[in-house]
Structure formats: structure tokens, C-alpha cells
Design a protein around this nucleic acid. Structure first.
Length: 500
RNA sequence: GUCCCCAUCGUCUAGACGGCCUAGGACAUCGGCCUUUCACGCCGACAACCGCGGUUCGAAUCCGCUUGGGGACGCCA
């Protein structure tokens, strides 16, 4: 079920969208998806994308979260136009707006305490009616005073209708709505009020937001009417659910964008995955960023909630990993090479650039995340003396395998050019000469060079590591084996560096 | 309770005009092939139109109801 966008709704170049998070937590995956949709819509139509921080709740808003949200947006490369707007800097604007509504008779002062209002609500609830404020102060002609709020004088009847970009035509009865508070007793503006004032002031043309805001929309439309302003186009994207099909939230294990960053996910992959949650383009799954901008026109948005699937995210990430050039992956990978393990520490140095790029090229198709890739690169980048072996790997090698290793060590040391073809020829010749299967030598070589029985093409590994490093790693393995008495120093085995 | 929304494989989804759908793709799962191990890749399998009525020559597609799920009912955002 979907609604195809009607081009008539859009004025090319005139589209202005916004993302308006409140800094009461990190940007999690659900919020990020909304941000992606808003950003894409603006970019597709060559319009503007505004970032507004809704920090009117002084109690819960924290600078740390604002910073984190901004960092997440940058990390996802969702660039916004102009400076971020902070609502707490705009209280004067909201005050002035309240005054206008008061003056035009669209709002009034209310002296009811939160307790009275709650009691009235409770009463309505118990009578099976919609809990709403009864408007008792509406015609009292009250003025400002301590503890007093300003409420909207909402119409008692009529229908409020609008065409939702994703849901189609929606209608609400005015009688369902009550006289909402616009200005709190402490003078701060309420959410619905500040949103409308700002969206109008910033000429927002398209409000794309979570489904949990549909019920706010008729209230906001009422406010636009009170101001005599034209409402924007609204679009409510379905909620994203956790794998457990519960609404995605912090306490339901919704991870933040920054956590995925730490886990080694590529920004483009995250954006790709997120946008496919509730949007589709035929059978396509993998999109580059610019393709998304080109393809996403606000249509084809799904109406039903979508569950987040970590496994598919992993797959999308793997796809992006392999599509990138090693040079493009390198800067993303650096932090993971640096923090993980001792051996990879100098990997970022210029001297190692070629080696690192070769490793990326060799391994990028095998890794699902940057973290994963860095882990797979580590044994290759680690000097022989620091190489660690997987539990039981050395011990698992048979005497014959050690023999092959010792022999191969000599033959490999003797090759003229240390390139893939030559190395392969040497190993292949040995295998045929002895009437072996390749795996008879592949396994011990992998253990010696990678510290594990599994890994990429071992000839490629040798070439990437280079002549010295390969020799050093073979020597070390042999030495350890001799030390543990797994190979007899006799039998004509030349084990360099072995002192018996 | 009241209001709003949603409903295709386990998951993300395709499915403009109802017939091309014995429902397609992708992730996951399970087989097999490839192979130098693992991974990749390739091939294949499993697997869905919530139910009931109606409209129609014909419905996953339109209408109604039921059921199930979600959301909202704050001087939070």
C-alpha cells in the first residue's frame, strides 16, 4: 500500500524541510531514518533542509545530547542549511506570537491549576469520554497572572482535514480536540505551539515526521488557521519497530547512530538501510547516496510500520564495503586499525600505506564491517614477533605439515621475485612433487602467517606481507614448534634460527 | 475508554488501470556447486496475500465488518 507523490505538491527549488529533534537523548536509528527522509526530500528537489533543536524543555534538554545529535548528523553526512536553530533562543518570538493570538481573540488566559485540569480529564475518562479540558476559563476574560497559562480558543465543531503525503486524506473532528495550552505558567511555549510558530517562520513547506505525530497535526492546523497562515504539506512516516516489533526506543535497545559508527558501519550503508525501511524502489536494495537523492521524491513511502533487522543491515554494510575503493575505505578504517591490537598501531603511517591498501583490497570482500575488516587485516600487518595464534592452532598441526612448512620456507626464501605467480608456482610445484593436496600446505601456512586455520588465499597473503615478513613468520612458527618438541631437529630439516 | 492509523513469506518489500500472481525480489534459514581452508560467488529449497461477507465474468488488488497490531489522548517532545 502506498501513495504516489503528486508532483503538484512540490514547487521545484521551493521545498523546505526540517528535522527537529529534542536533545533529550542520542540520535537513535528511528530518528535518523526520519532525518534521512527529510534530507532526501529537500535534496531531491533542490530545496533547503533546516535543523532545529527543540530544547524548550529546559529540564530534560542537555548540551551533551545536542552535541551528540549534531555529530551523528554530520557522520551520516546529512548536511543542513544555515545554522541549527535553537528554540530556547526564541522565547521572545513565541511571546510575541502569543500576544498576537491573544489580541485577535484566538487565545485566552486560563487560571486552572494542573490538578483541576487533571481532575476534569479523569472525570471525562471515567465517563468513557475523550479526556479533554472543558474550557471553563475561556469566557472569563482573564488577564495574565501567576500560575496562569494561555490556551487556544479552539473551534468546538467542524472537521479538520488534510492530505498526508504518505497516508492520504485524513480527517479529525474538532470536537475531539480541546483548548490546548500554548504558553505554560512559567512562560515557556508548548511543543505544538513553538513548532507551528517556527515552521511558519522558517517557511517550511513539507513536514515529514514520525507517525506518532499524526494526532498533533489537526491541532497544529488549528494554530495555522488562528495565525491566518497556510499549513505546510504533512507526511507521517510509519514508526520503526525493534526486532521484537515494539516501538523503537532507547529502552527497547534502539542503538544510537554513534554506536553503529563504533561498530564499524559505513554512513552510506546505514542511510541505505534506513531508507529502505519504509521506502522502496522496485527490487533495488543497494543505493549509492547520489542515487538516493535522485530517486527519492517523497513517493513510494510505505504506510505500515517496519521492523529493524540487524542482519540485513550487516548485509547492506558488507555490500557497501566491497563497492568502495580501498583508498576510500582507508580513512574510515584508520580508527579501527589504531585502537585494535598492538600490531596494527603503525598501520596508518605513510610507509605502510601500500601494504594497508593491499590488505584492504584483499580482504574488503570478506568483511561485513570496518571493525571486522580491521580485525582480519591485523595478522597481516602484525610483525612476526607480535603475531598471536588462535587457541590450539599451532598444536593442531601434524608432523607432516611442519615438514612441509620447513621445506617451503627454504624454497620461498629462494625465489627471485616475490610476486603472486611465482609464489604460487613454487607452492604448486612442491605440492605436485610430493603428491599432495594443496590444503596439506595451505593449512600450516595459514597458521604460520595468520595465526589461524582460516583466511584468504594464502599466496595473496604472502605477497601482501612481503618476503621478509613472510620469512620471519614462518621462522617463528617453526621455532615455536621446535621449542615445543613438535619437530625433530634431525631428519635433514633446516630450521633457521632454531637453536635446538 | 475515546480518536487515528496499519494489515503480502520469520524480516524488509514488489504488487499503477482488478485479470500478465499457481504472488516477484532481498535478508535470514536449509541444501548443493565452486574451491586452497573460511568467507564471497553461483544454483536450488523452504516460506506470505489475517478472517468473513460483498461488488465483479474475474480481487492480494475495490467496498463493508470482524480480528489482530500500532499510535495518540500532558503546563513532554
Amino acid at each position: 500500500m502506498q501513495v504516489t507523490s503528486s508532483p503538484a505538491l512540490f514547487t521545484p527549488g521551493g521545498v523546505v524541510t526540517r528535522f527537529a529533534p529534542s536533545p533529550t537523548g542520542h540520535l537513535h536509528i528511528g530518528g535518523a531514518r526520519t532525518a534521512v527522509f527529510c534530507w532526501l526530500l529537500a535534496r531531491h528537489y533542490g530545496g533547503r533542509f533546516v535543523l532545529r533543536i527543540e530544547d524548550t524543555d529546559l529540564e530534560r534538554s542537555r548540551q551533551e545530547y545536542t552535541d551528540s545529535i549534531l555529530a551523528s548528523m554530520r557522520r551520516l553526512k546529512l548536511d543542513w542549511d544555515g545554522d541549527p536553530i535553537f528554540q530556547k533562543d526564541r522565547f521572545a518570538v513565541y511571546d510575541a506570537a502569543v500576544e498576537r493570538l491573544l489580541a485577535s481573540g484566538h487565545a485566552y488566559w486560563c487560571a486552572c491549576s494542573p490538578e483541576t485540569v487533571e481532575a476534569a480529564r479523569e472525570k471525562a475518562r471515567s465517563e468513557g469520554k475523550k479526556p479533554r479540558y472543558d474550557g471553563r476559563c475561556r469566557n472569563l476574560g482573564l488577564g495574565p497572572g501567576p500560575g496562569r497559562t494561555v490556551r487556544l480558543a479552539a473551534p468546538a465543531e467542524g472537521r479538520i482535514e488534510f492530505d498526508d503525503m504518505v497516508k492520504g486524506r485524513l480527517a479529525f473532528e474538532a470536537s475531539e480536540l480541546d483548548d490546548m495550552v500554548l504558553r505554560r505558567a512559567d512562560g515557556s511555549p508548548t511543543y505544538n505551539f513553538s513548532v507551528v510558530v517556527d515552521d511558519a517562520a522558517m517557511n517550511i513547506t513539507h513536514v515529514l515526521r514520525g507517525d506518532d505525530h499524526v494526532n498533533n497535526t489537526p491541532r497544529q492546523i488549528l494554530l495555522y488557521r488562528a495565525f491566518g497562515a497556510e499549513p505546510p504539506v504533512f507526511g507521517h512516516v510509519p514508526m520503526s519497530l525493534g526486532p521484537d516489533r515494539q516501538k523503537l526506543s532507547k529502552r527497547h535497545g534502539a542503538k544510537s547512530v554513534m554506536e553503529y559508527d563504533k561498530d564499524g558501519f559505513l554512513p552510506d550503508a546505514l542511510v541505505n538501510y534506513l531508507v529502505r525501511l519504509g521506502w522502496s524502489c522496485g527490487d533495488r536494495e543497494i543505493f549509492e547516496r547520489d542515487e538516493l537523492v535522485q530517486l527519492f521524491d517523497g513517493g513510494n513511502l510505505n504506510r505500515s510500520p517496519a521492523a529493524f533487522d540487524p542482519q540485513k543491515l550487516l548485509w547492506v554494510n558488507a555490500e557497501h564495503m566491497r563497492r568502495n575503493a580501498p583508498e576510500a575505505l582507508l580513512p574510515e578504517l584508520l580508527p579501527f586499525l589504531k585502537t585494535d591490537g598492538e600490531g596494527g598501531a603503525q598501520a596508518g603511517a605513510d610507509a605502510d600505506r601500500k601494504l594497508v591498501l593491499a590488505c584492504i583490497g584483499m580482504l574488503q570482500g570478506r568483511a561485513r564491517t570496518l571493525k571486522d575488516l580491521a580485525g582480519q587485516m591485523r595478522p597481516v600487518l602484525t610483525p612476526a614477533d607480535d603475531l598471536t595464534y588462535a587457541e590450539g592452532a599451532l598444536e593442531s598441526l601434524e608432523p607432516d605439515e611442519w615438514t612441509h612448512l620447513a621445506e617451503l620456507r627454504e624454497r620461498l626464501a629462494a625465489v627471485e621475485t616475490f610476486d603472486r605467480d611465482t609464489l604460487h608456482a613454487v607452492v604448486q610445484a612442491y605440492v605436485e612433487e610430493k603428491g599432495l593436496k594443496f590444503k596439506a600446505v595451505g593449512r600450516p601456512l595459514r597458521v604460520a602467517l595468520l595465526g589461524a586455520v582460516n583466511g584468504p588465499d594464502i599466496v595473496q597473503v604472502m605477497q601482501a606481507a612481503g618476503r621478509e615478513d613472510t620469512a620471519a613468520k614462518l621462522d617463528r612458527a617453526l621455532k615455536l614448534a621446535a621449542g615445543a618438541g613438535r619437530i625433530q631437529p634431525t631428519g635433514g630439516l633446516a630450521v633457521p634460527g632454531n637453536h635446538g
